[in-house]
Design a protein around this nucleic acid. Structure first.
Lengths: 261, 261
DNA sequence: AAGTGGTCTAGACCACTAC
DNA sequence: TAGTGGTCTAGACCACTTA
């Protein structure tokens, strides 16, 4: 009952940002997400220090940290003690296996060697358009990658991205990208893939796939349909993969806190 | 430079528990995990209040809360404002779809109707024994479930559990369980399934499966191999599922913070 | 040495639940 | 009304990085 301390804490709702989120730290988180989506801070860059951000949003360090905690848990930010907080960047050696989930049956994980097999402009089919949330017939780029592990072709990726989000994408740029595909999206088009949804079923090899995978026409394959999302759950890529699981397999759900990579 | 406040914080390492974990809240988390593994608090029960636990472990409420935060993130504890903190319990309507990942191709999620098809005692094969971390030839129970969705048989589960952890398991008990299988493990054997690992590939229907799934012998099916883990990553169940993905499919990795159910 | 994030504290106030 | 968890604060001290 210390009446002297009454009123020390600001009443809730007096936040500097008008964003709605129920609690202060949610408001701060949303404000930071908005800044990220608006490219105020870009992939790989450092964001302002906790102290500065706390002042900017008019909250205490503890509250600011709780907002950042969640953005780190979402793999959107990365903290480095002594260095600062960074916008997470897709890198070959970091988080690559969070998206690439094909491993040898003995558990061995290796990076695939990727070859671009086909690249063309096209118009979105109804199904693809629905997944990408664009109009049916909207202009898209579609390309096919062949993935090999230990020298063996294991999977064929059929990838579609909307032209509106990837203006000026060319086959040459795709071929000469220095790192992973998602790193390329981030560097060249400011598109940050934050998460994916995948559905898996059995399919059958078509002509191209049976040729590239060196299996008989009609061989059953594992089909993985992926939609990749950026900020605000905006879909940015649809990918249909067909894998030969004779010696490799798909790492499915883990149903526990995300495995450390 | 307020010398008066020097020494207010206890030097690190003066924790009440001898458990090692780098930081105080990790120590507290480990101590709580140990208490949970030792069944000091059982599934569905409430644990002591934050205030009491903070006193017990000799830390402040904030530190205690950080330990509980992680246990909640791991789906081991559940908080209810005004009620208390509980040991999470497997329930049909809560988290069921975290483990059951077969949905209709249009995305529709329904509970499967499960029928026990076979139950017998057996000895662990080398492969199963390796996964369960028991001796080859150790006594196990193995049973087969048929799962139907919308009246259609979609998946056959072949489940193996070690007898040492499931003493006295009977076919009758399995059949008369009132809720989900993992809820039954928890209630009847104090075994809390905390996470799973799954690998997916294409397989082929054997005689029993083709009969139950009503597909021709040799039809390609989706094979899901699961190992379920309890505290300390102890494996408690191996499950090999074969699914007909003509109208249903497997919900794969999400690569973002765990989807809200 | 200066600046960053990482941990920890002690306590206020709010929201919810049960009695 | 009492007890619980949920949010927020203000600040101390530690560990790490760079210069």
């Amino acid at each position: 009952m210390n009446t002297l301390t009454t009123g020390i804490n600001l009443p809730n709702g007096a936040a500097a940002t008008p964003a709605i989120g129920g609690t202060r730290y949610k408001e701060v988180k949303n404000a930071m997400l908005a800044a990220l989506a608006a490219h105020e801070w870009k992939g790989g860059e450092t964001i302002p220090s906790e102290k500065r951000l706390a002042e900017r949003f008019g909250v205490s360090i503890g509250t600011l940290r709780k907002a950042i905690d969640e953005l780190v848990a979402d793999n959107i930010l990365v903290r480095h003690q002594g260095l600062g907080t960074f916008v997470a960047q897709h890198q070959r050696d970091r988080h690559f296996f969070r998206f690439f989930r094909i491993v040898r049956q003995d558990g061995d994980k290796t990076y695939p060697s990727v070859t671009l097999v086909q690249f063309r402009k096209a118009k979105a089919t109804r199904d693809i358009a629905t997944l990408l949330k664009v109009e049916t017939g909207a202009r898209v780029f579609t390309f096919i990658n062949r993935l090999a592990l230990h020298g063996e072709t294991v999977m064929i990726d059929n990838i579609t991205v909307p032209e509106a989000r990837f203006p000026g994408l060319t086959e040459a740029a795709l071929r000469s990208r220095p790192s992973t595909l998602y790193n390329f999206y981030q560097d060249a088009f400011n598109i940050n893939v934050l998460g994916t949804e995948e559905r898996v079923r059995v399919a059958v090899a078509n002509e191209l796939e049976s040729k590239l995978l060196e299996v008989p026409h009609g061989t059953p394959l594992l089909e993985v349909r992926r939609v990749a999302y950026s900020y605000h759950q905006a879909p940015v890529e649809v990918r249909i993969s067909h894998a030969n699981t004779a010696r490799y397999e798909y790492v499915g759900a883990s149903a526990s806190h995300e495995e450390p990579l």
